[in-house]
Design a protein around this nucleic acid. Structure first.
Length: 485
RNA sequence: GACCCCAUCGUCUAGAGGCCUAGGACACCUGGUUUUCAUCCAGGCAACACGGGUUCGAAUCCCGUUGGGGUCACCA
């Protein structure tokens, strides 16, 4: 059994790539790397109505951004091309012929209204809805007549009796009882094949050995196994990953906010950090939580993938992001953050080039609190803008500290030496001595006046970066009573 | 409703019958460093859903209950 492992990620291009899909792609990729196998990217775009070219393009782009490179698929080709289902219709036609001649399918002329009615009746009786097989009983003459009348039909798969066993790599053996499966649709009334059919044909022809996908496909698996058998193929091994949930315990969806991979890229998360976090949702590496794709691949193993659903936690993702940002060089981090400052209209790229060293200092002061690049905007706002806003309670506090603020203003105003961190602290200490203010009473009013925030980096760093004039100016806003908000 | 899956700290998880007085990470709290803030360091809070079995012994195996989730399309 030294057969090469072949796995695939097969999304449909019907919108932005979802977090759950990213984890599925990652696990497939990791398993391929771990085993030295192939990672196939296949695009399931048989739904002509919902699939778009734009989604297809952005899918490829986001996969590249993530660094999940594929050994076969769009752009790189491979021995089983094409890798877009919309380009494989002739192949499906071929295999459909085999099912027809084997007597595995029959046409169904039921209208959507009829089917809907049947479904409702079954639901009302407390049964799982399934197709009753009405059109199976049609005679050849009746079919000819329907066809002649121009009635549209779909092709259904004739489900044989007998329970179906799914052997799942993460779930063990799952038995689906006999009578639950109705004859399901293989081709639509326009003749196009449906997912359950194309997925089997493609996985079989592409020699996929392990189908690793979301749990939502588990209930489709019996149908697919039936098709494998009818076509004379050996089914691959299956591994169904538990669903990723939102904070309310439901399957993660749009109403939970940010669920597309794209939105995390737009926020400026590092792809390595993003994948590292996602990897931890259902898998626990032995060697600690922070590890590179290469390290993950070395350790990854299907048997240690968890069965229970995990809740997505943006707070921990933020922490993970910060771990990766901490590893960046200051130059790289500063360059990375630049587009976000530009977008927020705090600093244009041109200006940034002129003041790059200054900008580096700014970024350095806040680097430990950045989970993603875009965090830089809220963390460094006050370095670029004078429009600080204050809560009523803060304004009140400042009014009570006027003496201290005045002392600061005077001391900074009169300072003629170099305005560095050391001297800044010297001045602060002197003001403390002169006014008797100390600790929070000394620093807090100054911090608020300079940054408009309760927290932030060391003032000894903030002051010199702002420069003496700016410091005096921001103090004067208070001492002159010119409060703006 | 039917079928299927799942069940350890608030969250992600370790745990493959004795190593478990249940370990780690995030979050939170406290202390130290810092006359502010943050980092950092040290410590702390906090969980085996419940009930029956099996066993000398169960978080771990079995059954049931409860709870949560997924799926029931001419979507994938």
């Amino acid at each position: 059994m030294s057969e090469q492992v072949r796995v695939r990620f097969a999304p449909s291009p019907t919108g932005d790539l979802h977090l759950g899909n990213v984890r599925t792609a990652l696990y497939n990729w990791l398993y391929a790397k771990h085993t030295g196998g192939a990672f196939i990217l296949r695009v399931e775009d048989t739904d002509k109505v919902r699939s778009t070219e734009q989604s297809f393009e952005s899918l490829l782009e986001i996969m590249k951004w993530l660094g999940l490179d594929w050994t076969e698929g769009p752009g790189v080709g491979g021995p089983h091309a094409p890798y877009r289902q919309s380009e494989r219709t002739a192949i499906y036609e071929d295999y459909l012929g085999k099912l027809k001649s084997g007597g595995f399918v029959y046409p169904c002329y039921c209208t959507e209204e009829e089917l809907e009615l049947e479904r409702k009746r079954q639901l009302g009786r407390g049964h799982m809805p399934k197709y009753g097989g009405k059109c199976l009983k049609l005679t050849e003459a009746e079919r000819k007549q329907w066809d002649a009348e121009g009635k549209t039909s779909v092709l259904r798969f004739k489900v044989p009796a007998g329970e179906i066993l799914v052997r799942d790599e993460v779930r063990g053996e799952v038995v689906f009882p006999d009578d639950q499966l109705g004859d399901f649709v293989l081709t639509r009334s326009d003749g196009s094949p449906t997912y359950n059919f194309t997925v089997v044909v493609d996985d079989a022809l592409m020699k996929v050995t392990h189908v690793i996908r979301g749990e939502d496909h588990l209930s489709n698996t019996p149908k697919q196994i039936l098709i494998y058998k009818a076509l004379g193929f050996t089914p691959p091994k299956f591994a169904h990953l538990s669903i990723i949930k939102g904070a309310d315990g439901q399957k993660l969806s749009k109403r939970h906010g940010e669920t597309s991979c794209e939105s995390y890229r737009a926020k400026g998360y590092l792809p390595e950090a993003f994948l590292n976090y996602l990897a931890l949702l259902g898998w626990a590496p032995k060697s600690g939580e922070i590890l590179s794709l290469k390290e993950m691949a070395a350790e990854f193993d299907l048997t240690h993938v968890g069965k229970s659903g995990a809740t997505f936690d943006a707070v921990k993702l933020h922490w993970m992001g910060a771990q990766y940002i901490a590893k960046l060089s200051l130059d790289d981090l500063t360059r990375g953050v630049l587009p976000f400052l530009d977008e927020a209209q705090l600093l244009t790229r041109d200006k940034a080039r002129d003041k790059f060293d200054w900008l580096k200092q700014v970024v350095d002061t806040v680097r430990t609190s950045l989970g993603c690049y875009s965090d830089v905007v809220k963390e460094t706002f006050y370095f670029f803008s004078d429009e600080l806003s204050f809560e009523p309670a803060q304004t009140e506090e400042m009014s009570g500290q006027l003496k201290v603020l005045e002392a600061f203003e005077k001391a900074f105003q009169e300072w003629a030496g170099e305005f560095n961190g050391e001297n800044f602290m010297k001045i602060v200490k002197e003001v403390g001595k002169a006014t008797g203010a100390k600790g929070k009473g000394l620093y807090h009013p100054l911090r608020l006046a300079l940054t408009g925030r309760e927290d932030g980096p060391e003032l000894a760093k903030v002051g010199p970066i702002l420069g003496r004039d700016k410091v005096v100016e921001r103090l004067r806003v208070w001492t002159k009573g010119e409060v703006k908000d």
